[in-house]
Simulated scan of single mutants.
Amino acid sequence: MLDLTQDIRSDWTVDEVEALLRLPLLELVGRASEIHRRHHDPEDIQKASLLSIKTGGCPEDCAYCPQSAHHKEVELDREKLMNPGHVVSLAKRAQQAGAERFCMGAAWRQVRDGEEFDNVLDMVRGVRKLGMEACVTLGMLKPHQAQALADAGLTAYNHNLDTSPEFYGEIIGTRTYRDRLETLSYCRDAGIDLCCGGIIGMGESWRDRASMLQVLAGFDPHPESVPINALIAIPGTPLEGRDKVQAFDLLRMVATARITMPKTRVRLSAGRSDFSAAEQALCFLAGANSVFYGDVLLTAPNAGTGDDRDMFAALGALPEA
């Protein structure tokens, strides 16, 4: 039996995490819910809106991603970097719909200094002036770029690990695991919160899932937010034939993330539209306390805002209009 009395730890082993994942489901959810209530208001569910500010043409070969230039059969319109003023106007609209954090994603392998990066910095400043949290995902960073984002007021940087170190090479060949960890360290050094999670349903084993969570729980301090994504198998990508993730598999990941990272915001992210309100409510019970909120996630569909408002109203966590 694992000792959960000292619940803030950064020394989890893969065996310990896998043992949690394999607990009887009701026992696992019960433990996670207890820890969640110890550290969080269970009615506090953060709503984050996500916008693709530059779409398609990415030189990375991520097997799950429709924005990769390697996947020629994907039907996707490429779009240049948006105008900062337009982005801020969309952030204001998201805020009026109930979003508290505005996340901006650009399909870049890495940030390059110059006009486009300067425009992103303007976007961050504009979102922060609205009183919203600002998050970006731009690919790899250098230390001075992380500092520039911090100086602009960036709240968090999203840079997912995607999967375990052991399975990573099956999904991505153009960027190493160490590359990802370096960018995260630059953000931490600059005082930026980390938004870092992964994807399930890509063909990985339960051991791989445990290994990914062990890496995340090994950060000291833990990432401030951990998105748990269920693969959306986009036609034209190498993973287009994968089966949909089952709700109980997602629930196990959420509960184990909550136990291993008690103070972290655990976010229901991509694939949420495949799960019913009741299935999502189980995830909130198990420790999820953030969602991506809006009709689109970068280039993939998300649960509709209207459906979400109905769900949150039923849960007593209605976002303010």
Rank of each mutant, 00 (worst) to 15 (best):
E18V: 14
A146G: 02
D310L: 11
C283M: 15
G169H: 12
C58W: 03
D122H: 03
V226E: 08
K54A: 10
G169R: 06
Y168A: 06
T174S: 13
T260Y: 01
M261H: 05
Q214G: 00
A313T: 15
A94W: 00
H159R: 06
E320L: 13
A281Y: 10
A233D: 13
L251Q: 07
H159C: 11
T176R: 07
P223G: 08
F248Y: 14
A210K: 04
R78H: 14
I228A: 10
E43R: 12
L2E: 10
T55E: 08
S205M: 10
L239Y: 09
L161S: 03
S276H: 06
D44I: 04
A277K: 11
S49C: 14
L250C: 00
F292R: 05
F284K: 09
K244G: 07
A321G: 13
E182W: 04
K72T: 15
S205N: 09
V88T: 09
A99V: 04
L28K: 06
P84K: 05
T183H: 05
G114H: 12
V17Y: 05
F167L: 13
F275K: 09
V254P: 00
L21A: 06
V127A: 10
A134P: 03
R309F: 03
D7S: 15
T256D: 08
D179F: 01
A217P: 00
P143R: 12
P238N: 12
L161I: 15
F284C: 10
C58F: 06
R178M: 10
S276F: 02
A156I: 02
L239E: 03
G153S: 06
R252Y: 08
G201L: 02
K92R: 13
E115K: 15
I199G: 01
E18T: 02
D122I: 05
V29F: 00
L138P: 01
A300R: 07
V111G: 00
A217E: 12
R207V: 03
D15Q: 12
A255G: 08
V111A: 05
H222C: 04
G197T: 12
E166C: 01
K92I: 00
G203Y: 02
I228N: 07
L194I: 14
R265S: 09
T183W: 07
F275N: 05
F248T: 15
Q46R: 13
P42T: 11
R175K: 14
V29Q: 09
F292E: 12
R31S: 08
V14I: 15
A63M: 02
H39S: 09
H39K: 04
M132P: 04
A321T: 14
N158W: 08
Q214N: 14
T55R: 05
R209A: 10
G191C: 02
A277C: 02
G173H: 15
V296W: 04
R38Y: 01
S276Q: 11
S10K: 06
I172M: 06
A217G: 01
E100K: 13
W206V: 10
W12E: 12
F275A: 08
L194P: 03
H159E: 11
Y64L: 06
A19V: 01
A156P: 00
I172S: 09
L161Y: 07
Q246M: 13
G236A: 05
C196K: 01
A148R: 14
L50S: 03
L318R: 15
R37I: 04
L81R: 09
C65R: 07
G85S: 11
H70M: 03
I8A: 05
C195D: 14
R38V: 00
L315N: 02
M212T: 04
A255W: 07
A277L: 00
